[in-house]
């Protein structure tokens, strides 16, 4: 990597970007990454009370937005479309059912209800200008909510990151190692965390979480 950065300044022609609704309300049948685990049956047949509750929140709209924090059109446009400002390092924001997570200095992950992803993507594109990107990654990842009195202990078994109250207050979000994979971990409440995991690792991580939660009494909800 070079320290010498050569920048070319060009007046860019308006770029037409083909956007499509990737989370259709009707039409092709969608399957969550954990479809095969039949969580509805697991939830019905399993414990109804326990120290840890796991719930997959499938079919949400995941949008990655990228841009520079020095670009005020990008920052203000994103805030206008989302209804909440883009958060700083390791922070998250929430406005109604729109949530936004800091991922990197120039990258944020927005999660909205699946049916609203297309409208949000267009609203973001309309509101932001400059060197920015919006990518719908809904099909590539899924959300698992982890809650309960022993939820923190499950995290302590799964990640090397310090999840103590002193280091992990409500609203903080970290991307870190989780089991032998990775996850975006966000604390949503005193006893609740949200994990954003990759589709291809969903089965592995679900089995890991099931196993790690067993000793505390696992409740699966749908």
């Amino acid at each position: 990597m070079s320290d010498a950065i050569v920048e070319k300044t060009e007046v860019a022609a308006p770029v037409l970007i083909q956007v499509m609704n990737q989370v259709p309300a009707a039409g092709p049948r969608g399957e969550s990454p954990l479809h095969h685990a039949d969580l509805a049956s697991v939830a019905r047949q399993g414990n109804q009370q326990g120290g840890v509750t796991l719930q997959e929140v499938a079919f949400l709209g995941h949008l990655v937005i990228r841009g520079s924090i020095e670009n005020s059109d990008f920052m203000s446009g994103a805030e206008k479309a989302l209804g909440v400002a883009l958060p700083g390092p390791l922070q998250s924001g929430q406005q109604g059912d729109v949530s936004v997570r800091w991922i990197a200095p120039d990258e944020w992950l927005v999660i909205v209800p699946g049916a609203e992803a297309f409208a949000m993507e267009r609203a973001l594109r309309d509101a932001m200008s400059g060197h920015v990107a919006v990518v719908n990654v809904s099909g590539g990842q899924t959300v698992i909510n982890l809650s309960g009195a022993n939820a923190r202990e499950v995290l302590m078994k799964s990640t090397g990151y310090d999840v103590h109250d002193n280091n992990f207050p409500v609203g903080k979000v970290v991307t870190t190692t989780f089991a032998k994979s990775q996850a975006v971990i966000r604390r949503t409440g005193e006893q609740s965390w949200e994990l954003v995991i990759r589709r291809s690792f969903a089965d592995y991580l679900w089995l890991w979480l099931q196993d790690a939660s067993k000793e505390f009494g696992l409740v699966v909800r749908t």
Partner: peptide
């Protein structure tokens, strides 16, 4: 960038 210490594994 994250402005905190992390384990080498990351």
């Amino acid at each position: 960038h994250c402005q905190e210490h992390r384990e080498e594994e990351e």
